[in-house]
Amino acid sequence: DTFTFTLDGIEVRLHGASEELIKTIEELLKRDIRWEELEKWIREWEK
């Protein structure tokens, strides 16, 4: 599955994202998160 969203005018596609990761990103997007914050968060998630 591919999860697609737009952040700061950039279309982002995550391939093979888990349901948990998708739900977490959706929550972060509701908080009007900035790209830099999401990028940092995703790097931490990957560890």
Rank of each mutant, 00 (worst) to 15 (best):
T6A: 04
F3P: 01
D1C: 15
W41K: 08
T6G: 02
R13D: 08
E36Q: 12
L28E: 02
T6D: 05
R13C: 15
K47M: 13
E26G: 09
L7W: 11
I25D: 00
D32W: 07
E39G: 06
L28H: 05
R34K: 13
E36C: 08
E39L: 15
G16F: 08
W35F: 14
L38H: 00
H15F: 15
E11P: 02
L38Y: 11
L7M: 06
L38C: 03
E26N: 12
L14H: 00
I25W: 01
L28A: 10
E44R: 05
I33H: 03
T2A: 07
E37I: 06
R43L: 10
D32S: 11
L14Q: 00
L38P: 00
W41I: 12
G9I: 03
S18H: 05
H15K: 09
I25K: 00
E36P: 14
A17L: 09
A17T: 03
K23M: 11
E19I: 14
L38R: 00
E46C: 13
I33E: 02
A17K: 04
E20R: 07
I25Y: 01
L38Q: 00
F5T: 01
W35P: 03
I25C: 03
F3C: 03
E37A: 09
G16R: 05
W35N: 02
E19M: 14
E37W: 09
L29I: 12
K30L: 12
E44T: 05
D8C: 06
F3E: 00
D1S: 11
I42L: 14
R13A: 13
T24H: 12
V12F: 14
S18Q: 05
E27A: 12
R43M: 10
R43C: 08
K30P: 02
E27T: 13
K47T: 13
D32R: 06
E19Y: 14
K23I: 08
F5V: 04
E19Q: 13
I22H: 02
G9Y: 04
T24A: 15
I42K: 01
W35R: 04
I10T: 05
E19A: 14
V12C: 08
T4D: 04
R31E: 06
R34T: 13
R13E: 15
I22S: 02
D8V: 02
I10F: 10
A17P: 07
E19T: 14
E44S: 11
I25T: 01
W41T: 08
I25M: 03
I42D: 00
T6M: 11
L38W: 15
G9R: 01
L38K: 01
G16N: 14
K40E: 08
W35G: 03
I10P: 00
L21Q: 09
K47E: 11
I42W: 06
H15G: 05
E44H: 11
R43T: 08
H15W: 12
K30W: 06
I25Q: 00
